[in-house]
Design a protein around this nucleic acid. Sequence first.
DNA 1: TTGAAAGCGCTAACAA
DNA 2: TTGTTAGCGCTTTCAA
Lengths: 348, 348
Amino acid sequence: MNDERSSTEKTGRHSPTIRDVARIAGVSIGTASKALNANGRLRQETRDKVTRVAREIGYRPNDMAQSLHRTRSMTVGVLSTDSFGRFTLPIFQALEEQFADRGIAIFMCNATDDPERERQHLDQLLGKRIDGLVVTARRADKRPPVGPLPPGLPVIYVYSQPDDGSALSLVSDEVGGARLAVTHLREIGCTRIAHITGPEHFEAVLERRRGFREALALEKLTEHPGFYLSGKWSEQWGREAVAKLFDGVPADQQPDGLFCGNDQIARGAAEALRDRGIDVPGQVAIVGFDNWNVMTDAARPPLTSIDMNLAALGQEAGRLLVDMIGGDSIGGIRRLPCTLVVRQSTQR
Amino acid sequence: MNDERSSTEKTGRHSPTIRDVARIAGVSIGTASKALNANGRLRQETRDKVTRVAREIGYRPNDMAQSLHRTRSMTVGVLSTDSFGRFTLPIFQALEEQFADRGIAIFMCNATDDPERERQHLDQLLGKRIDGLVVTARRADKRPPVGPLPPGLPVIYVYSQPDDGSALSLVSDEVGGARLAVTHLREIGCTRIAHITGPEHFEAVLERRRGFREALALEKLTEHPGFYLSGKWSEQWGREAVAKLFDGVPADQQPDGLFCGNDQIARGAAEALRDRGIDVPGQVAIVGFDNWNVMTDAARPPLTSIDMNLAALGQEAGRLLVDMIGGDSIGGIRRLPCTLVVRQSTQR
DNA sequence: TTGAAAGCGCTAACAA
DNA sequence: TTGTTAGCGCTTTCAA
């Protein structure tokens, strides 16, 4: 009856529908659908005609209409509570790749430290009937679990963990990373190793310190008084800490190795030592954390650092979420290993 | 007839539908819809009952079903050809905020220098019936326009421009930024200003150089031979460039002001001058570009820099795209002004 | 081999 | 004030 109406009659932009294809090709909608989805028994001739028409008028199936049938929306939500920072970035990138490869689209949301906004975003995502959810937070800190969520919705926390330990959580092994650093320093001959790091309200600071101490114990080294310094995540603090460790301190009480909580601190430390004419790595070796090449490469000398392999974290997260969407039920905390990247600051 | 079936009977997870709400509340679907959308004339009692039931069973309307009606999917696509880099980041953030405020969800895609992948992403986005598209590219370089797109789909290029100048494009005024820098140097007394910058295959390098030269002319200053140096975007290059400009050069032929193409170069330059005992800003003043605080704040002295106001760019882009979705038809290139941020490196 | 029709979850026009 | 119904664009039986 009103099959006659063309989509162009309607107001505003409008993509061609399968009805348009069918009408122009002179077949029924059902036939057009079969032809385009390459299933059902159809004459080759019909099939060709339909696909040709579809191409000509630029037909593209409406995913939303499709999703109404399937149980999958083929979308996932990525909810960040760290404003798209330097750390979540490589994770996003890897996630994006993983999902894109599987034809899954990503809804990206940001709710930096704003529970109200987080609630809104979550609402929206659930309205979109996402198939899964990735939650990332800042610097591996614990956070309250998002929610409430419909039961059965796959969720994965990346580079962050819910404080009730309920859901699947993927983090990097900070303790292990710190141990790598100390062991490496020990291997190149350091025996008096100091740890300059960031603010203690960061979960990461505590974990790295634990790794530092465990490794010292393992290597039968002692932590000398004043060799643990907590401050800010800045180059400035790295310089200040070196002043505390070296200025007016007898040579035999100075450290011969520095394990720094991040690369900025490490770079500040390297520069401060350089200012004082102390040779790196000759007299003092330095290991940083993050392997942020902007810092490691520009420092003099270039810095050895611990890499958290955030891209790998993102990849693994993508794979796991896909598995969960597929029906696997997995949970608990998984820690991915860090890697030591050696540069001149520890090359003797 | 089969209104009896409950959604829980079905396999897999499944959100409650409006039919579930209606059935439990003992009203028709139409009534439930009216109640939930707060329109139509309904008894308050009925309205309350329906909303209560909806809340209890955790009902949330299915956006995809809704979008099938409206002409809007309430989603936009953001397609990046620069791997979520440092520059696109603040833009994303601002975009995200703009759209989130209007209940628009964002599909985030990345297709770093891969036309094939770009095609796939675009396909997917069109399948999702996005209401608008944002395209960002790396460092303000020109790029071929994305496409083909359905006619009438609002598109905006941010921090990038299509090389056929067809669509709306929002970039920062690099030329103006460079002029700001030079004028500022002139104002604090510099007369021999050099420009150390990045690789010339970057559009930004050419534009900033143009601004540099225009400002010199305006200030009646001459560009001395060897005072334009193009290299890499690194601190290392900043140091090397300083060596070229100062080592073995008679004092009266050395520059007294440096305008650097980015903050890394500026920082490298500052350090190199420091190594040589040349006072900054006393003998040589420095202005960087990007206002990347990781660099500007850690440099000694902290760097004056040009800020491209990328967040403002993102905000404006969001607003414009929303306007276009609303029916406005706008095009052409718009340049947003840069800002000078003064720090010690030019404070005399 | 093709067409007709039901239904995914929702809204809106029209009846009752 | 409430119920019924016709779609939105698509897939998928079931008939023809």
